[in-house]
Design a protein around this nucleic acid. Sequence first.
DNA 1: GGGATGCGGGTAAACGCTTTCCCAGAGTAT
DNA 2: ATACTCTGGGAAAGCGTTTACCCGCATCCC
Lengths: 348, 348
Amino acid sequence: MTDITADPGRDRPRSASPTLHDVARHAGVSLATASRVLNGSTRKVAESYGDRVRSSAELLGYSANLSAQATAKGTSAIIALLVADIADPYFGLLASGVAHGADEAGLVVTIAITERDAEREIRLVRALRGQRPRGLILAASRRAETTDPRLKHELDALTAGGGRIVTVGPGGGDFPAVLIDNRGGARALGVALAARGYRSAIVLGALEGVRTSDDRIEGFSEGFRSGGGDISRVIRGGFDREGGTSAMDEALAGGVAPGAVVFGISDVIALGAVSAIRKAGREVGADIAVAGFDDIPTGKDVTPALTTVHVPLTQVGHEALRAVLDDSWVSGETIILEVLLRESTPQR
Amino acid sequence: MTDITADPGRDRPRSASPTLHDVARHAGVSLATASRVLNGSTRKVAESYGDRVRSSAELLGYSANLSAQATAKGTSAIIALLVADIADPYFGLLASGVAHGADEAGLVVTIAITERDAEREIRLVRALRGQRPRGLILAASRRAETTDPRLKHELDALTAGGGRIVTVGPGGGDFPAVLIDNRGGARALGVALAARGYRSAIVLGALEGVRTSDDRIEGFSEGFRSGGGDISRVIRGGFDREGGTSAMDEALAGGVAPGAVVFGISDVIALGAVSAIRKAGREVGADIAVAGFDDIPTGKDVTPALTTVHVPLTQVGHEALRAVLDDSWVSGETIILEVLLRESTPQR
DNA sequence: GGGATGCGGGTAAACGCTTTCCCAGAGTAT
DNA sequence: ATACTCTGGGAAAGCGTTTACCCGCATCCC
């Protein structure tokens, strides 16, 4: 079969992946036809040809070379995702939503981890840019003001190259963003805790300037005060469990009256605080109440179960993916959150 | 400057990413020289030229097009990672290790999620194959026997294309593997629990055929029996929290004597069991003891703290990355685990 | 002084695709 | 029968890189 003349690829090593050329030759059609059959094209191809090509492809185990496709088309099938720390359940859930959406859309997602380090973030965006991704989802909780000009420059270069950028949470830049109602959720939590009879609160936040943290702190303060409560201290530290424990240690050193409530601006921080409270020999709940934010699965497993604000992280990730694909997407409705009162903040 | 003759790219839209061609023209050198300067090459280039090129690149914001580079070189700078569920802390930790290693090596990692679905896994490998990745890390806890020929086929195609495959845990195939001493760790746990005075155990595992689960079950049984204990039941279910609760419900329905210990083959399953035990009005610890495996962070936060076996997941991920890059790597030493006795299994 | 040998820049041919033309043949209207 | 319009296959020109090869120029050795 296919005794096509020259057979230029005769010496091709049998090991390397078969190319479109191989498939076309095997099916006895031109490169163009093979391409049209195997990869979406507006042009129609006769059934008979189509079948031949498809079965040759199947037989040879052909799989389109995405890189070559990307250079030829000038656009890739890649979505880049930048998170602070993939081991953190917050980002894990988010990534899960993104990955699912990408899979549905036939895209591949590449992931990079900033570790909340600005320098690193710039480097990573530069590296990701090399892939000419169709889109970039920025979920590395960044600091608001610090829209470093160098980062800005990389991001602009990426959009100039045809990539769309979407941020999760306010991005600082003027990119479309999937907005989470951190402030509203925190306010509702503050109100609910005041209604449960708490009058004194300590807030454990991340460093000043981290937008998510600041919003949650402000929202909580508004809500708690409006219900008649008082914010006795705001302590800022790291964004992880360790940050929570050390901030709580500091709070305890300053003295914490029984009946106070501690609000950690993320569940992870709140869990760190719980650990510190226990280590100090105090009791979580009736003695010192604790509330978090995010509703990570662990919150349900600890005792007492952690009061928190549910953030539909997987859905947020999915939405971010949709946003990054849809040119006409404009920052949609802010995602509304829901307060989950549990035993870590008993009625007083 | 650079009044090079024709200026063929005059009408290039100002927006698109600058190409190497642009840089070369701007610096007044040839494409070859620019390439040699900007991307590693054995050939030397005169300092003066080098500087010119570098500053032009900087000025224009040039970033090499990885796709084009990949097609030209025939090899990409991509590592593909296949996990079962990125929202599961087990895989989150693992992915974290992989991502770090990749970053150090200047590689980009693309991630895909199998959801423990064999069909999906095949589809994903096929899709990832399109990227001609330098390596594939298979961490989706797969079933041993079920080395589906279709999967095998895709994997072979990938290696034929020059990619290296490494599995985390026994892969079923004959690929190099980062081995975790599941059996030994579980055996040690069994011995330790027997030594704490337990004599009756219920094991909660995943479906039969999932290698990791089977190894842990067998190891635990060996150890516990050798210490004089008795395995009263083995219940198999899902690999997630939900699987743990329903398996535990089943166990409870059959009656669980006080003083028994429940071994969940992963912390996630164990936590599900804890939840079920509580819902049934029983107490975790003195009444029904619980132990897990993996040492995910949550285990330290729950009360009572969960007895478990520490698996250095991040390190495992890092090792897997090294393995996938190093042609001469042969399945190294098995990673040794450590038993962590905590309050969920008090001394009897 | 003259050939051998480096050195280092440039030219152009790949790499594996997509896509714009071109063109032959078939159908249709006059 | 002629002129026109569709259809749909194929040839070939890209896409942005790398790299084998060529070639002019110093340098060096006898």
